[in-house]
């Protein structure tokens, strides 16, 4: 019996019932890990096969996810050596910025939907921001 891969993976959120294809869900999970720095620049990613087996998805699914992450510049694949989190921070910070914008868009949409005016929204954001900064110190 080949030993189960000893991968200590951060929890991936994957759902068969999700409206997005499985490879997109894997892309999103990995992007999150990279953006939040759980997977730091230069870190070596699990091999495609290892990740597929530990997530119980097929090899082609992970391969597709890695290919798209590679063309987005989030990871770098070196032939015969595997894949690594990109050290070109520009790409990563760009991804961070996009992620932040996306979440702000969601917040803005919800605020409009709930008729929350811009002043209240801004005040709320400032308050939350201060709390987080204080918590970090």
């Amino acid at each position: 019996m080949p030993a189960k891969p000893e991968l200590t993976l951060p929890p991936f959120k994957l759902a068969q019932a999700d409206a997005r294809p499985m490879y997109e869900q894997i892309i999103d999970n990995i992007k999150q890990l990279v953006i939040l720095g759980v997977w730091p620049p230069g870190m070596s990613l699990p091999s495609i096969r290892e990740l597929a087996v530990s997530l119980n998805v097929s090899v082609i699914t992970v391969k597709r996810a890695y290919q798209e992450l590679d063309s987005a510049g989030i990871i770098v694949t070196r032939h015969g050596k595997g894949s690594f989190v990109s050290e070109q921070l520009e790409q990563v910070s760009q991804a961070k910025q996009i992620e932040l914008t996306e979440r702000l868009v969601q917040a803005a949409e919800l605020a409009v939907l709930l008729n929350v005016d811009i002043t209240t929204l801004t005040e709320q954001l400032q308050q939350l921001y201060k709390e987080k900064v204080n918590a970090k110190q």
Binding site: M1, P2, K4, P5, Q16, R49, E50, A52, V53, N56, V57, S58, V59, I60
Partner: peptide, 27 residues
């Protein structure tokens, strides 16, 4: 899924359980 760890090994299977096929297959 454990068989997949070994890249020399292959599986060909037929199934009426489309969920299983959707989950397991590369092709």
């Amino acid at each position: 899924f454990q068989i997949m760890l070994n890249e020399d090994h292959s599986v060909i299977f037929s199934s009426q359980f489309t969920q299983d096929v959707e989950r397991l297959s590369d092709r």
